[in-house]
């Protein structure tokens, strides 16, 4: 039987790779940001999965790491969105390449 954390952990890895793929192939900024956020969610999810330890109480350290990570991710997203808005104001949509 597959342990629970292996199941959820692999989902995290899959999310990371999906996000990475999307980041590389999709040009619009918003889609890139969603991709990055999903990549991040994948890693966070992996950390949450390994914190779950069956009968014992869950490991609080990964939880704290993920909390930190979520706030950092949202800060970066906010900054990136304002960047793109300024770019639009400065003339046309942001460049479509990365």
């Amino acid at each position: 039987m597959i342990p629970l954390q292996a199941l959820y952990g692999s989902a995290g890895v899959v999310l990371f790779v999906l996000g990475l793929w999307s980041f590389l192939v999709h040009a619009p900024l918003l889609r890139k940001l969603i991709a990055i956020n999903i990549m991040g969610s994948g890693v966070f999810h992996l950390l949450i999965a390994i914190a779950e330890r069956g009968t014992e109480p869950p490991d609080p350290v990964p939880h704290a790491l993920v909390l930190t990570g979520i706030v950092v991710a949202v800060s970066a997203t906010a900054l990136a969105l304002v960047f793109s808005r300024r770019l639009e104001d400065a003339g046309g949509p942001p460049e479509d390449e990365c």
Binding site: M39, L79, P94, C98
Partner: peptide
Amino acid sequence: LSASLRYLLVGLLGSM
């Protein structure tokens, strides 16, 4: 702006 945005995104990719 464009360069900084790219810098930010690449940085995020790197940190992830």
